[in-house]
C-alpha cells in the first residue's frame, strides 16, 4: 500500500506538581517580573519533584500504546531522547550525579530500558540529542526518513526533558514545564501525514546564555524563513494554513511572528500556553494531541508545527490532519 508517513498517535505525561507564575516569582524562580510573563500568556507550569525523566517517558509511551491498543511487538524502532544515561533515572529533586557519566553507568541507557520494560521486542533503539526543544522534530525527521528509505512501519519517538533544576523556571522570557511526550510515526498514515519538514541549525548561537539578545533578534527572521520554507516545501500557500500548532513560548513573540508571516492570530492554537507553559519535551505534539481531542483541528486541515531549540535550531513540520 502506498501512502505517506504520518503521526498516528500522541501521548504525554506531566509531573503531579504544578505552580502558578506568581508562585514561581515569589519563590525566586523567574528572572522576569511575573506580571510581564502573565501578559505574555503564561499561567501555570508543571514541575517534576519525585518523578524522573525516564518515569515520565515510560508513562507517556505506555499510555500511547495502551490508548491506541498498539501491539508492542509491532514497533520497529524507538527513538529516545532526554538526559543522558542514568541521569534519566534520577528523580528531579535529587542532584545529578556527574560521576555516573564517567563510569560504565553511562551506558545504562533509558532508551533500551524503555524497550525492555514496554516489551518492544522487535524494536531497535536510536538516541537523539543536542536539539533542546526541537528534539522531537529531529526524531520525527529521522523516523519519517527511515520509514521511506528502510520501509520501517512503526517508530515510537519518546522525549522526556526536565528544565535544569538550578536554572529556575524561565528560558528567554518563557516559563518552562517538565514533561514527556511520545509520538508514533507510521510509514502509511491515514491522518496527520507529514507533508514536509525543515530544520535549520545556526551554530553561531550555540551559547544561548552569552548570545541571548542576539538569539531573540535572530529568532524572528529565521523563524519566518523556516515556516515559509516548510509551507513552500509542502506545496502550500500561507493562506492554506488552517492552524499553527506552536511551541508554547510567549504569546507576544507568536503574535509578532504571525504578523511577520501575515497570518492572523486566530490561526494559532494557544490553549496550552497558560495551562502548561513551555515544555522542552514537545509542546507542539502535546498541543496537537489536545487540539485533535478537543475538535479544534479537523481531518484534512493543514497544520504547521514550529519550534525553536536552544543551541540553536529552528524547525518546522507541515502536517495534513
Amino acid at each position: 500500500m502506498t501512502g505517506r508517513p504520518g503521526i498516528t498517535a500522541i501521548a504525554y505525561a506531566l509531573p503531579a506538581c504544578s505552580r502558578s507564575v506568581r508562585e514561581l516569582g515569589a519563590a525566586g524562580q523567574l528572572q522576569t517580573d511575573p506580571e510581564v510573563l502573565e501578559n505574555f500568556g503564561f499561567g501555570r507550569v508543571h514541575i517534576a519533584v519525585a518523578e524522573s525523566p525516564y518515569e515520565l517517558a515510560y508513562r507517556a509511551a505506555a499510555r500511547l500504546l495502551e490508548e491506541q491498543a498498539v501491539d508492542a511487538a509491532s514497533i520497529d524502532l524507538v527513538i529516545y531522547s532526554g538526559p543522558p544515561g542514568t541521569l534519566s533515572l534520577t528523580p528531579a529533586a535529587q542532584p545529578w550525579n556527574g560521576a555516573a557519566l564517567s563510569s560504565t553507568a553511562r551506558f545504562q541507557y533509558p532508551g533500551t530500558l524503555l524497550q525492555f520494560e514496554l516489551g518492544l521486542l522487535n524494536a531497535s533503539v536510536l538516541g537523539i540529542d543536542q536539539l533542546a526543544c526541537s528534539t522531537l522534530f529531529g526524531a520525527l525527521r529521522v523516523a519519517r526518513s527511515l520509514c521511506v528509505t528502510e520501509g520501517i512501519e512503526r517508530v515510537l519517538c519518546v522525549h522526556a526533558e526536565f528544565f535544569p533544576a538550578a536554572a529556575g523556571r524561565e528560558a528567554v522570557f518563557n516559563c518552562t514545564s517538565d514533561a514527556a511526550c511520545a509520538v508514533l510515526v507510521e510509514r502509511v498514515a491515514l491522518r496527520n501525514c507529514i507533508a514536509a519538514s525543515v530544520h535549520v541549525t545556526k551554530g553561531y548561537y550555540w551559547d544561548g546564555d552569552a548570545l541571548k539578545n542576539e538569539i531573540v533578534a535572530s529568532y524572528f527572521p529565521t523563524s519566518k524563513h523556516v515556516i515559509e520554507r516548510v509551507i513552500a516545501a509542502a506545496g502550500w500557500n500561507a493562506a492554506d494554513v488552517d492552524w499553527i500548532i506552536p511551541h508554547n513560548v510567549s504569546l507576544r513573540s507568536w503574535e509578532l511572528l504571525l504578523s511577520l508571516l501575515a497570518l492572523p492570530n486566530t490561526r494559532l492554537w494557544t490553549d496550552n500556553i497558560a495551562r502548561y507553559g513551555h515544555s522542552l519535551a514537545g509542546d507542539n505534539f502535546i498541543n496537537l494531541r489536545d487540539a485533535l481531542d478537543g475538535g479544534a483541528v479537523r481531518p484534512g486541515q493543514k497544520l504547521i508545527l514550529f519550534s525553536y531549540g536552544y543551541g540553536a535550531h529552528w524547525t518546522a513540520l507541515a502536517v495534513e490532519a
Binding site: 545556526k202 551554530g203 553561531y204 524572528f220 529565521t222 510567549s250 507576544r252 503574535e255 509578532l256 504578523s259
Partner: peptide, 24 residues
C-alpha cells in the same frame, strides 16, 4: 555566523516588537 537578514515589516508590527523588548 549565518546572521539572518532583517524582516521588512509594517510600522505597527515594528512598534509591537519595540514594546515587547521594552517589557522584557
Amino acid at each position: 555566523r549565518g546572521i539572518p537578514r532583517p524582516v521588512l515589516t509594517d510600522i505597527a508590527t515594528y512598534h509591537r516588537f519595540e514594546l515587547a523588548v521594552e517589557e522584557t
